[in-house]
C-alpha cells in the first residue's frame, strides 16, 4: 500500500530525514520507534504532505501513485490519516461541525452524496462510545480546552469516523494514563482490518502491549537503523536507545 524509497526531507536547509526506505502492505501494523528528535514526527508529517518540510530526494508511493505532488487534502482524500502528536485547537469551530465538514469533504472527493445529519449523528455517537469520548466534547470547539487525554481520544474518534486506508498515529500514547491508553488501543484495534494499514509512532514499547505490531523499525538521526518483529520492541524496552545513539554517532564519524 505504502512504499517509501530513499526519502530525504529538510527544513530550512537542515536535513532531518536522511534516506528512509519502508514498505507497508494492507493489513499490516508497523511500529516506528526511536529517541526524541530522531525524525519520527517529521516522517509522519511528510507522509501527510506538510509543506514545512521539503522533500529533497526519494519517492513516496501510495497504492502505486506518487504522493509528492499532492496537497495535504488530496492525500487525506486518498485515505491517509494522521493522528497528531499535538492536536490543534480551533477556537469557535464546533467539534461536530468540523468532523462533519471533514466527512463531507472526503465524500465529495469520492463523488458521493453528503451524509444527512441524522446518519452522521448516528455514526459519530457509535464511534464516540468506542473511544469513550464524552458527547459533551462534540459540542465544544475543536480541542479547545480539552485535556491531553481528551485530545488523543478525539483524534481516534476522527480516525474512526473518517475510515482511512492508512492510519498514522504519532505518539498517540504519550501523556495517557493506563486506562486511557487501553481505551485508545481498543479504538485503534477496532479499526484493524485486512484492507487497512497502520503506522504507529511511539517512543515507548508500552502501547505495543495493546496494539501488536507486525514489524518494528527503529529510527535514529533520520534513518531506519534496525527493523524486526515485535520482539525488537521488547528488546529496546530493556536496553534503551543508548546503543543506537552510540551506533549513529559511530556511523557518522
Amino acid at each position: 500500500m505504502l512504499e517509501i524509497r530513499d526519502l530525504h526531507a529538510a527544513v530550512e536547509g537542515h536535513e532531518i530525514l536522511r534516506g528512509i526506505d519502508l514498505s507497508v502492505a494492507a493489513g499490516e501494523v508497523h511500529a516506528i520507534m526511536g529517541p526524541n528528535g530522531s525524525g519520527k514526527s517529521t516522517l509522519a508529517q511528510v507522509l501527510a504532505g506538510r509543506e514545512t518540510f521539503e522533500v529533497t530526494r526519494g519517492e513516496i508511493l501510495f497504492e502505486g501513485e506518487s504522493l509528492l505532488d499532492r496537497s495535504p487534502e488530496e492525500r487525506a482524500q486518498l485515505g491517509i490519516f494522521l493522528a497528531f502528536q499535538y492536536p490543534v485547537e480551533i477556537p469557535g469551530v464546533q467539534n461536530l461541525y468540523f468532523l462533519r465538514t471533514a466527512v463531507n469533504a472526503l465524500r465529495k472527493a469520492r463523488g458521493e452524496e453528503e451524509l444527512d445529519p441524522a446518519s452522521f449523528m448516528r455514526l459519530v455517537r457509535e464511534k464516540a462510545k468506542l473511544v469513550d469520548l464524552d458527547e459533551k466534547l462534540l459540542k465544544r470547539a475543536v480541542n479547545d480546552g480539552f485535556s491531553g487525554g481528551e485530545k488523543k481520544r478525539n483524534e481516534i474518534l476522527q480516525m474512526a469516523v473518517l475510515e482511512p486506508k492508512l492510519c498514522i498515529l504519532d505518539e498517540t500514547d504519550s501523556g495517557l494514563d493506563i486506562d486511557a491508553l487501553r481505551t485508545v488501543a481498543r479504538g485503534v484495534n477496532a479499526l484493524r482490518s485486512p484492507e487497512r494499514a497502520m503506522i504507529v509512532v511511539t517512543h515507548y514499547q508500552r502501547l505495543l502491549d495493546y496494539i501488536e505490531p507486525d514489524r518494528v523499525h527503529v529510527l535514529s538521526d533520520g534513518r531506519i537503523v534496525r527493523s524486526g518483529g515485535k520482539d525488537l520492541a521488547l528488546e529496546l524496552e530493556k536496553s534503551g536507545y543508548g546503543w543506537i545513539e552510540g551506533r549513529a554517532a559511530g556511523a557518522g564519524s
Binding site: E73, F84, V93
Partner: peptide, 21 residues
C-alpha cells in the same frame, strides 16, 4: 494543516477558522 489533513480544502479551512474566530 490540521483541517487539510482531514480532507478540508484550504479555502474552506480558512473560512472555517475565521468564522470560528
Amino acid at each position: 494543516f490540521y483541517c487539510q489533513q482531514r480532507g478540508i480544502p484550504v479555502e474552506d479551512a480558512v473560512s472555517m477558522i475565521v468564522s470560528g474566530f
